Amino acid sequence: MTTVQTDERRHDLDALRVFCFGTLIIYHSSLVYGAKSWWIHSSDTSTLIDLIALGSHPWRMSLLFFISGLVTASLLKKRSVAEIRRVRTTQLLLPFVLGVLLVVPPQIYVSPYNPRPDLSYWEFWTSYFISNLRLEHMWFLAYLWVYIFVWSVAHPVIMRRWPGLSATLAAHLRGKGLFLAPIAFLSFLRVSLYPTFHETLVITTDFYSHAVYCSMFMAGSLLVNERSFWREVDGQRWISLCTAAMSLSALAALFVLIPREEMSEALIGVARIIRSTFQWSAILTLLAFAGRLASCPNRIIKHLNGSIMTYYIVHQTVIVLAAYHFAQAGLLDIYSFIPIILITAFICVLVAEVTSLVASYLTPIVRGIARGEREVQKPPSEAV
């Protein structure tokens, strides 16, 4: 049964984080062979490959932000809001900066979208740094920091003015309300905001994504300790599983049978509602079954969870570079899909392990230096 572990780590959430970030490697690799253009795109495409995105993209990032809200609010047991904001800023800022400056540029440089392919990499990087910085997949870190800041401002106000808001929200998410209210909300956003704003992944213009992801983050922060919600999620697990399976089947059928350009506006609206249904029911299903199947400590999950941010930062650039070299060798076809996934996973593991070793070596040195500075700064004792 899904439980709220108030005095210990939520191992189910660790497992879900690893699962979500792990599927990103498969998802981004599939974009090389999908119908839409990407950084590196194979001429050998497959409609079946596009079903990977159809079946994983609607729920993955929403679930990650929901989990981030859960984890952030759970830290209140040991830290103040200001401390949480400071710690999370430290955790997110350095990877974000390094990612934007060092990890993103190679993707652009080897892609057909490089505006100056005649430049050396150093000349390209200098131009990129001066005038063309891009977030790319680092958008997740930037958005997460923004939502943590919003939460840090909103949480004290909510606790002061609406102390029962969490319990009220959980009370409404019972029975049919567990499905109808969130699906109606997500459908409204998908039908009203998405046609105008789309998903830009540009932090200043991505109004639809902010509406979805910030809502998910805040919902997670409110529901983390609401036992009635978690009992309801567990109790409705088979309904959520069936709903997810049926809505995904409907989406897949529409995608395969009717080309997007031939869909009427009414059918597009229906598809968006079905997508929102799949989005929320898949999230509920994963939360419920993770609570049952991954509620105990697992050494592999624990190890991967400690390195998962490194995997996230590195993986997309590795995929693009691997696909680029396959293309240069004339081997970028559908049969290279699995090899690219395996190469990416291997390099992510390698980078994560090396990073962990370096960090374990440097941390005692940094602490020793800091301790020495504090001792030097202590005023001398007065003579007796």
Results as ranks from 00 to 15, higher is better:
A345E: 01
V349Y: 00
S356N: 14
I313C: 06
Y335D: 15
L350A: 15
S336E: 05
P339Y: 02
V351D: 08
I334K: 01
L321A: 14
T344A: 15
I343S: 10
L342F: 10
T344W: 14
I341H: 11
Y335P: 09
V351W: 07
A327W: 04
E353V: 01
V358M: 06
I334Y: 00
A329S: 14
F326Q: 10
A323W: 02
V318Q: 01
I343L: 13
F326E: 11
A323C: 03
V351G: 09
Y311H: 12
S336V: 03
I341K: 07
L321Y: 11
I347Q: 01
S336P: 12
F346H: 02
A352C: 06
I313F: 00
M309P: 12
L342D: 06
V320T: 14
M309I: 15
T310L: 06
F326N: 08
G330S: 12
A323N: 05
I338L: 15
I343V: 15
V318L: 03
I319E: 02
I343M: 11
T317C: 13
A352G: 09
E353W: 01
Y311V: 05
E353F: 00
I319P: 07
D333S: 12
T310Y: 04
P339I: 01
T310E: 09
H325I: 01
T355L: 00
T317Q: 12
Q328T: 03
V314N: 10
L332W: 04
T355E: 06
T344H: 14
V318A: 06
V349C: 03
P339W: 02
I343K: 10
V320Q: 10
T344S: 15
Q328K: 07
L357C: 06
T310S: 13
Y311L: 09
Q316M: 11
G330M: 09
Q316F: 10
I341T: 10
I343D: 11
I319L: 07
V314G: 05
L332C: 05
V320H: 08
I341F: 07
Y312A: 05
I340A: 13
Q328F: 00
V358T: 08
I341V: 15
V320N: 12
F326D: 07
H325L: 10
G330C: 11
I319C: 05
D333C: 06
T317S: 15
I340Q: 15
V358D: 05
V358A: 12
L342V: 13
I319K: 03
L332M: 05
I343H: 10
V358H: 04
A359N: 03
A327L: 04
A327C: 02
A327K: 14
T355N: 09
H315N: 15
I334P: 01
Y312V: 04
F337P: 11
I313H: 01
Q328H: 04
F346K: 02
V314Q: 11
I319G: 04
A329V: 03
E353H: 02
P339D: 03
F337C: 14
L321M: 14
C348G: 06
A322N: 09
E353D: 02
F326V: 03
V351H: 07
A329C: 08
Y324P: 10
I334Q: 03
L332S: 07
A322L: 07
L332Q: 05
P339K: 02
E353N: 02
V351L: 08
C348M: 01
T310F: 03
S336C: 07
T355M: 00
I341C: 15
V349E: 04
I347P: 08
F346Q: 02
